[in-house]
Every structure is written in C-alpha cells, then in structure tokens.
Design a binder for these strands. Structure first.
Length: 837
DNA sequence: GAACAGATGGTTTTT
DNA sequence: CCATCTGTTC
C-alpha cells in the first residue's frame, strides 16, 4: 500500500482554485469577460460575473438581450465548472439552436479551455500531466438533434438502428408513397376521407390542395406539430366528437400514424422522430449510463425551444440535479423566431414556474441587459423599437429591463435611412453606398450641425463588414406559366447594381435562385445528363411507365423541359471549356471505358462523375457560391441512398448502353436526384461554409442573421413596397393569423402546454416585431433602414399607406382600428441621399 | 380624385 | 383566387 486513499479532489487533478481561474480567464477571453472576471470596477458586469461564478448546483434562467455576452458568460461558466469545480467534460451537455452556432460555441469553449490549460501549465509546470489529462473534446456540445443522435448511437441496444435524419424532400416523397396511399384502406373510404381532408386543410392553408405534393407538405407540417407539441390524439378525437372535423382529423391521424409505423419498420428517422425516440428512452430508463453521468445542462437560445424539446431538457435537468448539478438556460423572448418549428415563447417566459412544477428545480433569474455589441444610438433605437407597439408589450417577459449600453462600442452615429421611390433606386443607392465604402472612400452626411463620416476600417475593412438583411433573399419571383423567369426581385436588383459599380462589388447570396435556374448548375447537370443518357432513352422509359399507368403527369412534362434546358446550356459551353471535357462526356455517353474495367458491370457513384466534371468547370474551384451549390447537388445524391435501389450509383457496362440494369440505375438517378433538383426540392445550405466571405456583400434573411453581428447593417424594411402586392400583408402588416398560428391554436387544447395566451393575429404581429427586433440589433456601429419612400411618407390621395411593422407601424387596437404609426415621417433617421453618394 | 376595368404576381425561416 | 397595380373616364 502506498499512502492514504485518494480523495475525490485528488482524482480531479486538473482543477485549479477560483482565484487562479479569475486570473487566467482574462488572458484567454474577450474584453467584456476580462472586465467581469478581473473585477475592473468601471467595466464589471455583475450579472455576467454571477453567472460565471454560480456554483454547480445552482440552476439559472438567463434573460439576455442582444450583444450582452450571453454565450461568452455561458461558455465561461462551463469552463469554470470544469476547472474549479472539477466537473468531468463528458458530464457537460450543451446545446444551441443552429449547427453554425453550435460549432462556434464548441470552438470558443475549446480554444479558451486550451488557453487556460496553457496558462496553468506555465504557472505550475509540475502538474503538466494533470492538466494535459483533461480532454475538453469530450464535452457534448451541439444542436439538440445532433446530440440526441449521438447519445442514441452511443447507447444502442442490440438491434437498435442508427438514427439519422432523412432529407425533407425524401420524407415528403415517402409520405406520398407510404402514407397517403396505404393499401389497407378501401378506395371508397379513401375518396370520402380525401374530400374531407381537403376541406379541413383549407382552413389552415387557404386552399384545398389538389396535388399530392402540396398535401404532403401540409401533412408533414401537421405531423411535426403533433410530435413537437406532444398532442394527445385520444383527447383530440374525443374533443372533436360530433364536429365535422372529426372525419378529416381521424383520416390525417391514420395517415400520420401509418407513416410513423412505416418509418419505424424501415428504420428511417426525421428530426422530430429522433427527438421523440430520445425522449422515450430517457423516460423508460434505458439511458441510465448516460443519465447517471450528466452534471451540467446548458441550453442556449432557449426561447426557440418546442414542447417536446422542453420535455427532453427537463429529463436531463432532473438527472443533473440528482447528480449534484444543474441546468442553465439562456435566451431572449424578443428574439424568438422559430414558431414554425414548434417554438413557443411561453415556454421561455414561463421557464421558472414550469421547471419548478415539473421537477422541483428553482432556478435563479439573471438578466444580462448590457449590450457590448452596439453603439449607444443603436441600443437606444432597439429599445425604442421594442416598446413602440403597445400591443406587443404583453408578449414580453414581465418586468424585462431595457437594454443598456455596456460601454464597449463608443462610436457615435445616428440611425440612417435610405429611401427612394422605386425598388430599383433603393438597390442602386445601396450599391453606390457599398461601392464607395469598399473602395476606401468616406461618405459624409451632415445633420444637426455635425458631419457623420462613414468609412470602412482602412486596415482590414471589406465588403464583408456590410450586411443587407431582408425578409427574403429570393432573386426571382415564381416562374411565369409559360416558363419564363418571374419578376426580378430586390436581391437581384441589388446584385446587378453592385456589379455595375466601378470597381464591381460581388454579392454572396447562394440561396437567391433555385438550383435548377442557376446557369453554372445547369451546365454541370446538363453534362451529367449527357454522360448518363445522351439520347434521353432512360428518360423515355420513365415516360412510358407513366403512360402505362395512365398517369398523365404534368410534373413529368415540366421536369423534362427543365432537363432539356440543362442539356442545352451544357452543349452550348462544352467545347469552349476543354476538348477533354467533350471527350469525357462523349465517352461516357457511349459507355467507352477510359481504363480497363474487369467487372461486367461497374458501379460508379454519381458524385464521382460530378467530381470529375468540375475539374473542367473552374468556377467550382474558385467561387464560394459555387461551392455551396455543389454541396447541395452532392447532398441530393447522398440523400437518395436512403431509398432502396442504386444508392446514388450508376451501373456502367462497357460499350453497352441498353443493359437493363444499367438503364434502371439511370432511371433512378433521374427520379431521385435530377427530378428533385428540377422540382426545386433541394435547398442550398449555407452552414457548409464555415465563415462568411470577407470580400463580398452579404445578403441574408433576418432568420439567417440571428446570432451574427455586422459593423454596418442595412435592414430592408420594404424596398418592394412600391407595389404592395410584392410584399404581401403577412410579411409586413398581417391581416389575420398565419398557417402556423392557426395550427397552433387548433392543437393546443389537446396538449400539455396550455392555450396560447394571445390570439392568432396578435401572434402574427408579435412574430414580425421580433423579426425586426433581431434585424436592428445585429448592427454594431452603423444601422441603416432602407426601403421605398412609402416607408417614410403616406402616399397622396386614396392610395393605401405602405404599412410595415419594420417601419414602426403598430397593430390595430380599439383606438386605432387601422393601426398607428408613431414613427410617421421617420424624423429620427438621418437620410442618406444621392448627393451624399 | 373617385370609380371602375383589366392586368398582374404570389411564403418565409431550420434541425 | 384576390389584393392591388395602372390606365381610363368622368
């Protein structure tokens, strides 16, 4: 025996004292934390400090305004728990809302943690082995969905599948084939149900879906609602007894439940079913190993949590509390944007009561309301905006303190406005503004006797410092019935106007157009088509099959037209690209192998062909938008692997095109990869890119901007308002509840969340107010509101005013049945006119 | 500047 | 299918 038994403290050998932590933390973290931890009396944020130093067993409810350093404080609390309290990294379960935010939280925690380890190593070189033994990578940090997946994988029981969420378009097409046409239901029965369902869906979607794809979209949404809200189906049917809704709801439940059975049998998952599976396993005690280990649960962006996620978090919190730990949730009710995903701000506002009643935990409330992001002027503006609409106030957390300026950004600029009398002119003004700044010039705007000089940082300023936030980044409206492109929308006008500047400025908007309409994507896909099926033989076979089934399909005709467009684009450019490309495509087309193939049939992945082709399409190597598009095309290939069949592969039979299996594999490629792209079911995802490009103007939706910040933020509050049809009421000044609000109201009586506290129209307004609250609060130094002059002045005569929540219009109430406009005239903005540019 | 006819375009966010 | 635009007419 050597020495006394080790105490627990000895085993947690990487720990340091609280004092040491306070000393080393500032060296590795940012300024605000520096102040908080180091105790700088002028800059200290007592609330941040109380979060960071809270003991392990203290649960926290953190209400944090924009730019208040919530993620910083949360990350530091976590590191403090590890370093001072000796919490093992794998006892930490930290989630946030998007994959991008999760990646950032992870990298921040790890890089700070490593910095601290280095500092400790320097201080106490003899304990180097102890400090190095700490593996921060073991912390579970991610989106709830990804962590649920990870835990289910790590704790698989015999025969359990590996859950991975399937692409949305696959889910819809599976629902169509497996859910809507279950063979067990008789035809007459189905017809009656179909009719009733159509009538029922009309209440929510404003029209009766005639087409199955439309109906699949609706059913997927309802299915997710049922799961996210954890609707009690028995109660629902009982409550509808005798109502005309009973039949359609029963029919929908049949489809949804039948589909769930199918998914379970086929071991196919989507996000909500992974969550439900995770919840079931937490509840039925089959994740004991995992739960006995959990000590600290951190939830960022808690305001966007839905009910089934809340249930998961409460289970985890209960386990953590049992193990001597706690839960900390962080969020801001004013920034809740994800109602369509089942998020309900009541869960955030009522967190203290809800968690107390459910599991007996009593969290301490902490408000972080100092903005370290924005200037005084922007903080004031954002505050003003949040209290502008009297009807909004009851939707906010009770006694919420206003945001105050945290002294970090001491620049002074007024809030600017760019208003012009056409969408085109707004785009041109923003383009000129951007081009001048990017080329290093100063824009000087005089107001109130002061010259406000705007310029980018001469050292490292670039177009990436400027962001344009809009409601939609779509560059074209819907295609015309004859196939011509739709209306050119504001983002396209901006793109074009920027390209015409000297020097031209590039824009970053990979989601601006459907993949099928982007010329370089068309070129790539057209070349694929000419490789796989140059004469369209396999395509003809698909058509024959439709004909045999007596299935006249306008969808097919539309797709065939789109595909031949792609071919034309590719054929138009191929020879000018490279003779090698032409040879490659031609050889593929007649199945001439370029190397020796021993197998009778070689399996070639579509992604390999793509990889080969882009060698001759240089934009895919150099341009960042192209990378995002390429990722989407490849994802479409990968997604098809879930379905039975050739898993995104094509069978290559040397020198023989008409091999039956080979043709079938090409038919699959059409139906599972190329048709979905032609039907615009594949979405471009931006989080494939780690960071936004520095040299381009970012144009993004307000949703996408959540969690980000920009030195210069331009918010589009209605450039399209020259024609009020182009910006429908639902996106600026709603006239009634939207589909989500209606669905919410309909199902809430049958679940445990309780009824929504506000009516549907109010919730529609609340959502828009939050949208623009988020937009305005992204700005660090300069905030510019941009739009049509209707945003500033009422039009003359009997023309309708351009009512827009983002322009400060408030919802109707008893006094003002048509709404009110306290910001009429926008006198508090300093206008940037063409003469300034 | 009111009243009407004919033309026209049209939901968005994510795991 | 409908809200709202432009153009015409009084």
């Amino acid at each position: 025996m050597t020495g006394p038994a080790r105490t627990e403290k000895d085993q947690l050998s990487w720990t340091c004292t609280r004092e040491t932590f306070s000393e080393i933390a500032p060296a590795v973290c940012g300024v605000t934390v520096d102040a908080a931890v180091a105790g700088d009396p002028n800059r200290e944020d007592p609330n941040q400090k109380s979060i960071i130093s809270a003991p392990l067993n203290e649960s926290l409810f953190v209400i944090a305004g924009p730019g208040s350093g919530k993620t910083t404080s949360a990350a530091l609390r976590l590191l403090k728990l590890v370093y001072v309290d000796g919490v093992e990294p794998d006892a930490v379960f930290a989630t946030t809302f998007t994959r991008k935010a999760a990646a950032e939280l992870r990298s921040r925690i790890i890089s700070w943690g490593e910095g601290m380890r280095d500092a400790l190593n320097t201080r106490e070189p003899t304990r180097r082995d102890d400090f190095d033994a700490l593996d921060l990578n073991k912390m579970m940090i991610g989106t709830l969905d990804s962590l649920a997946q990870e835990v289910l994988n790590d704790h698989k029981r015999a025969g359990d599948p590996r859950p991975a969420p399937v692409e949305e378009h696959i889910l819809k097409s599976l629902l169509l084939t497996q859910g809507i046409f279950p063979s067990s239901i008789s035809r007459t029965h189905r017809r009656a149900d179909d009719h009733a369902t159509g009538q029922f869906l009309r209440n929510f979607y404003g029209r009766e879906w005639s087409s199955d794809p439309g109906r699949a979209t609706a059913l997927v949404e309802i299915r997710q609602r049922l799961q996210n809200d954890r609707v009690d189906q028995g109660q629902l049917l009982a409550g509808l007894q005798g109502s005309p809704d009973h039949q359609p709801v029963r029919a929908i439940l049949n489809v949804v439940n039948g589909f769930d059975d199918f998914m379970r049998d086929a071991q196919i998952y989507d996000f909500s079913s992974i969550n439900i599976t995770f919840l079931e396993r937490l509840a039925n005690n089959t994740l004991e190993d995992f739960l006995t280990n959990i000590k600290f649960v951190l939830v960022d962006e808690y305001q966007d949590t839905n009910y089934s996620q809340e249930s998961v978090y409460f289970q985890l919190a209960q386990a953590a509390a049992r193990n001597g730990g706690s839960i900390t949730v962080v969020g801001d009710d004013d920034q809740s944007l994800y109602r369509f995903r089942g998020a309900t701000v009541e869960l955030f506002a009522g967190f203290e009561n809800r968690i107390h009643n459910r599991i007996g935990v009593t969290p301490r409330r902490v408000a972080l309301n100092r903005s370290y992001r924005s200037t005084t002027d922007i903080v004031d503006f954002v505050n003003q905006y949040s209290v502008l609409d009297p009807g909004y106030q009851a939707a906010r957390v009770l006694n919420k303190p206003p945001l105050i300026h945290g002294d970090a950004n001491t620049q002074r600029f007024p809030i600017f406005g760019i208003f012009r009398d056409s969408e085109q002119a707004v785009a041109e003004a923003i383009a000129q503004f951007t081009a001048r700044l990017v080329s290093g010039q100063t824009i000087s705007v005089r107001s109130g006797g002061i010259n406000h000089n705007l310029r980018l940082d001469p050292a490292d300023g670039s177009a990436g410092d400027i962001a344009v936030l809009t409601y939609s980044t779509g560059e074209y409206g819907d295609r015309k019935p004859d196939g011509r492109p739709g209306r050119e929308r504001f983002p396209l006008k901006l793109r074009d106007a920027l390209e015409q500047q000297t020097p031209p400025v590039s824009i970053f908007n990979p989601r601006g157009r459907p993949l099928r309409d982007i010329p370089s994507v068309q070129e790539l896909l057209g070349n694929i088509l000419d490789c796989l099926d140059p004469d369209g033989l396999a395509l003809d076979r698909i058509q024959e099959r439709y004909d045999e089934n007596g299935d006249f399909s306008p969808r097919y005709v539309q797709n065939a037209t789109t595909l031949s467009e792609w071919r034309n684009v590719a054929r138009g450019t191929r020879d000018s690209r490279s003779p090698e490309l032409a040879r490659f495509v031609e050889n593929w087309g007649i199945r001439t192998p370029t190397r020796r193939i021993t197998a009778r049939r070689a399996r070639v992945s579509l992604n390999d062909i793509i990889f080969k082709l882009i060698k001759w399409l240089p934009s895919y190597q150099t341009d960042i938008e192209h990378l995002a598009w390429l990722e989407a095309v490849q994802r479409a290939v990968t997604a098809s692997a879930v379905l039975q069949g050739f898993a995104g592969d094509v069978l290559f039979v040397p020198n023989q095109f008409d091999d039956e299996l080979s043709i079938r594999s090409v038919m699959h490629a059409y139906q599972r990869v190329l048709f979905p792209i032609a039907e615009d079911l594949i979405e471009v995802s931006e989080d494939a890119l780690e960071t936004l490009p520095r040299d381009r103007l970012n144009i993004m939706t307000i949703h996408q901007s959540k969690g980000l910040e920009f030195p210069i933020t331009i918010v589009d509050i209605g450039a399209a308002m020259q024609d009020l049809r182009w910006m429908r009421p639902r996106s600026r000044f709603p006239t009634g509840p939207d589909t989500v609000h209606k669905l919410e109201s309909y199902f809430r009586p049958y679940c445990d969340i309780g009824l929504p506290a506000r009516d549907g129209l109010d919730r529609a307004f609340d959502d828009l107010v939050r949208n623009y609250f988020v937009a305005f609060s992204r700005a660090q130094d300069v905030l510019i509101l941009a739009g049509h002059t209707k945003c500033v002045r009422r039009p003359r005569g009997n023309a309708k005013p351009g009512q827009h929540v983002g322009a400060g219009w408030c919802r109707p109430d008893n006094r003002n049945p048509d709404g009110s406009w306290p910001w009429e005239g926008m006198g508090h903005l300093v206008l940037i006119e063409d003469s300034h540019l």
